[in-house]
Nucleic acid binder design. Structure first.
Lengths: 340, 340
DNA sequence: CTGAAAGCGCTAACAT
DNA sequence: ATGTTAGCGCTTTCAG
C-alpha cells in the first residue's frame, strides 16, 4: 500500500510537500504539485484516513446508533427509511457512516458513548431509542455532538429532529370528529416514547376542544406492534361496542386493530373507522387501505444528517427541526352512521 | 480524552504494561493488572481504535457497498433485510460496519476499492451491484477480502452467497405446470443481474422438461420495478391473450403484472396466475396475496457476514454459500381453467 | 516554496 | 514481569 513517503521518494521531494500538494495547499509550486499528483495516481495512492484522523483528531465518520435493527422492525421500515435519508445527505459530504453493532447483550458491556469514543466518531445520530434507555442519557451527557430522531432533547451539543406529533394527532382526531364520530378510542405506543406522549396530547386536546369527553379507559397501549395492538383492541372493542373510531399511534398497530375488528365481525370502515400514523408502505397496499398521518421518514433522516453536519462543520449551535405531517385519507375511515 | 500514557503515569507503570494489561496478555502481574484496570475505569478510558488500527494494520471494520439505498428501493426492503442480517451477525463480533456513501456522482471520483482502502476496511460486502458495474471488477481485482451477495464470482479472496435461483425458478415453473398451465410467460429483471440469468435458465429448463415450448417473445424485462413490469406485462398480455400464467423474477414486478392485468380486465388468479420471487413483506398483505418463491433475505446477509469474518479471522479460503428457497403458495395462482 | 522534526495513541520487538 | 524504543501514516509547526 502506497504511502506519502513512497510518493515523496519517487517524486524527489519531502513528505511535507506531498502532503501539502495533495491537500490543495496554495504554497506549493504548480509544477511540483503536478508531478506529485501524477506520481500519486501512478502508484495508486489512497490516503490512510485512520492516520489522518489520528493526527487531526477527527475521523470524518458519523456514528449511527440505531435500536430496532432487527427482525421485528422490518415490517415498518421506518428505520430503513430514516437510514436512507441519512445516507442520502451524507453522500454529498465526505463523512462516512458507521453502524454500531448493538445487540442487547453487547450493550451491557459497551455503552453507546464508549462505542462512539472508541471509533472517534465526530458526531452521532440516535434513532429508535426509548426514553428510559440509560444510554440515551449517557450520550446526552457525553460531549459528543449528537442529533436525536424523535426525542426532543436539546443541549449544548445535542439537537433533534422530529415531526409535529401534537398537530399530527390533532389532524387525525379532528378528521374523525368531522366525520361525525363522537366515541373515539386510541391505541397508543408505550410510555417510553415521546411521540406517544405527544400524540396522546394532541388527541386529547382535540377531543376536548370539540367538547367530546376524553375517556382514559379508552386509551390502550399497543407497544407499536401489530400483535399487541390486535389483542389490546380486541379486548377494548369487545367490552365497548359503542366505539365507532380508533386513532392508532402507528400504522402497524392500525393493522392489528383492523385484524381485531375482523375477528369481532366489525367491518372497517362501515362500523369502525381506523386511522393510523406514519404512512408506512403497507398502508396503501392493504385492504382497506389505511387513512393515516403521513410523516416524511426519509426527510427525518436527511434533516438529522444535515443538522449534525452543520453543527460539526460550521460549529453552528445545536438546534432542532420540526417537520410537517400530512393527513392521507384512504379507505379505513368513513362518516359515522348510526348502526343501532 | 484519556490515553494509555495518562493511565501509565497515574498507575506508575509504562505504557507497554498498560497496553498489555488491558489487552489481556498473560505476562502481567495480576496485581498490577488490577490496578491498571481500576485506574482505566476511573479515568473513563476508551482505547483509540484508529491508533490501534494504524499500528496493527487492521481496522476491525467491514465496508458495506450497497447500491440501491435510495428512495426507489424502499418498497422491496430487500436491501434492508440483508443489512439487518449482516448487522445481526456482526453484533456478535468486534467488527463494526461502515456504510459507504455512494451516490452515483461520487462514484465517478471515488471507486469502491478506493473507499475501502482509505478507510482501511478489513473486508467488504457488496450488494445490489449490477454485473456490468465497472467497480465490481475493481473490487474483485483488488485484494480486499470480499463477499458478494447474489453475484457468483469466486476468487482467491472473493466469496459469495446467494440462493439457488435455478432451482427456485424451477419450483415456480413446475408449480404452474402442475396447475395445468401450458402457456406461461416470464417477466424477468434485466440482463445485468446474475439472478435474472439463472432464474431464466431454471424457467426454461423446467418448461422444456415438461415438453412445453419456451417462447423467447414471451419473456420480457421489467427491470425489477413495479412500473416497468406493469407496462411490459400490459403490452405482452394485450398482444397474447392465450397466456394463462406469468412467472416474475421479483415480487415487486409481480405486483406490476397484477396491475396490468387489472387494467386489461383480466382477473387474477381466475384468468391469469401470477407468481413472484423474493417473498417481500408486501406479498402476504396485498390482495390477492402473492404466490412466490421465498428467499431468506436476512440469512443472506447473516451468511455473508459470517463467511467474510471467517475469511478474515481464520484465514479460511474464500468459498460460497447457496441458500435454499421455498415456494409459498398464496392466492395469486390457481389451476388452469379453459375460459375460451 | 520546501524540508526537518515532532507527535497523534497505540503495539511490538527487544532488552532487562 | 516490566520498561525502552521504534514506528504505523499522516499533519503541522518551525526553519530555511
Amino acid at each position: 500500500m502506497t504511502t506519502i513517503k513512497d510518493i515523496a521518494k519517487a517524486a524527489g521531494v519531502s513528505v511535507t510537500t506531498v502532503s501539502r500538494a495533495l491537500n490543495g495547499y496554495s504554497d506549493v509550486n504548480e509544477k511540483t504539485r503536478k508531478r506529485i499528483v501524477e506520481v500519486a495516481k501512478e502508484m495508486e495512492y489512497s490516503p490512510n484516513i485512520l492516520a489522518r484522523g489520528l493526527v487531526m483528531n477527527k475521523s470524518k465518520t458519523i456514528g449511527l446508533l440505531v435500536s430496532g435493527f432487527s427482525k421485528e422492525s422490518i415490517k415498518d421500515n421506518f428505520t430503513f427509511e430514516v437510514l436512507s435519508g441519512i445516507n442520502q445527505f451524507a453522500a454529498g459530504t465526505d463523512y462516512d457512516l458507521v453502524l454500531f453493532n448493538t445487540n442487547s447483550i453487547k450493550q451491557r458491556e459497551k455503552t453507546y458513548a464508549q462505542l462512539c469514543r472508541e471509533r472517534r466518531v465526530d458526531g452521532a445520530i440516535m434513532q429508535g431509542i426509548k426514553t428510559d434507555d440509560p444510554y440515551l442519557q449517557e450520550v446526552v451527557d457525553s460531549n459528543i455532538p449528537c442529533v436525536l430522531v424523535d426525542i426532543p432533547i436539546q443541549t449544548e451539543n445535542v439537537g433533534f429532529v422530529t415531526t409535529d406529533n401534537v398537530l399530527g394527532a390533532s389532524k387525525a382526531a379532528q378528521y374523525l370528529i368531522d366525520l361525525g364520530h363522537e366515541r373515539i378510542a386510541m391505541v397508543n405506543g408505550h410510555n417510553y416514547a415521546y411521540v406517544s406522549q405527544e400524540r396522546l396530547e394532541g388527541f386529547k386536546k382535540t377531543l376536548e376542544a370539540a367538547n367530546l369527553p376524553y375517556r382514559e379507559e379508552w386509551t390502550v397501549n399497543g407497544y407499536f406492534t401489530e400483535a399487541d395492538a390486535e389483542s389490546a383492541a380486541y379486548a377494548l372493542l369487545k367490552k365497548n361496542k359503542e366505539i365507532t373510531a380508533i386513532f392508532c399511534a402507528s400504522d402497524l398497530m392500525a393493522l392489528g386493530v383492523i385484524k381485531a375488528a375482523a375477528r369481532l365481525g366489525i367491518s372497517v370502515p362501515e362500523e369502525l373507522s381506523v386511522i393510523g400514523y406514519d404512512d408506512i408502505l403497507l398502508s396503501s397496499y392493504v385492504t382497506p387501505s389505511l387513512t393515516t398521518v403521513s410523516q416524511n421518514k426519509q426527510m427525518l433522516g436527511y434533516s438529522a444528517a444535515e443538522l449534525l453536519i452543520s453543527m460539526l462543520e460550521d460549529e453552528k449551535p445545536s438546534s432542532h427541526i420540526i417537520l410537517e405531517t400530512e393527513l392521507k385519507i384512504r379507505q379505513s375511515t368513513a362518516a359515522y352512521k348510526d348502526h343501532s
